[in-house]
Design a protein around this nucleic acid. Sequence first.
DNA 1: ACTAAGATTCGC
DNA 2: CGAATCTTAGTA
Length: 194
Amino acid sequence: MKIGRKFFQREPVVCARELVGCRLQWGELSGVVVETEAYDGEGDESCHMWFRPSTRAFVAEHQAGTAYVYLNYGMHWMLNVLVKGRREGFVLIRALEPLTGLEVMRKARGLEEVSQLCSGPGKLTQALGVNGRHHRMDLCGDAAFGFHRRKETVDVVVSPRIGISRAVDLPWRFFVPGHAHVSGMRAQKKTGRG
DNA sequence: ACTAAGATTCGC
DNA sequence: CGAATCTTAGTA
């Protein structure tokens, strides 16, 4: 069952947690969402809304469920969903377990290993072909692009977000524990604790 | 016009 | 560990 706009008319943290375990359909390609992060425009200094006027304008001009796609580090597209409930913000899609279109993903990534296709926010956009053309796309309108509930359920655990320099302690990363397709950055290993 | 920083990934 | 690569925003 396709996830409608109402789902995204809640708080970013709630949407981020509940999207884990859902299926992302992207044309002929699809995968199970196994990792997300929430970014809240109110009080979250790592959210683009905090320091980018253009992002605040984007939020004001679009409805919940709209894709927010941007280029990071000049090379990696990041796929987010606009959330507008009591609080406004975004859900970053960080990792997928590929379901369909494996060969297309392998070709796009230049890799064979399934666990390397979508195990990171930059990896999955490359695998799915997500880019600036998808910015502002309504993920609740187009039948071929959006999220769907699944019968299967998954465990979800929480941790601080990865790869950011501000508001690093907010526990707003949600993922399936021990899942092979969850992103594995240095920051994860770096459990540096005095 | 110039500078700085960034929700990352890959290779050495 | 450090390069790759470019958009946004602040400053002159």
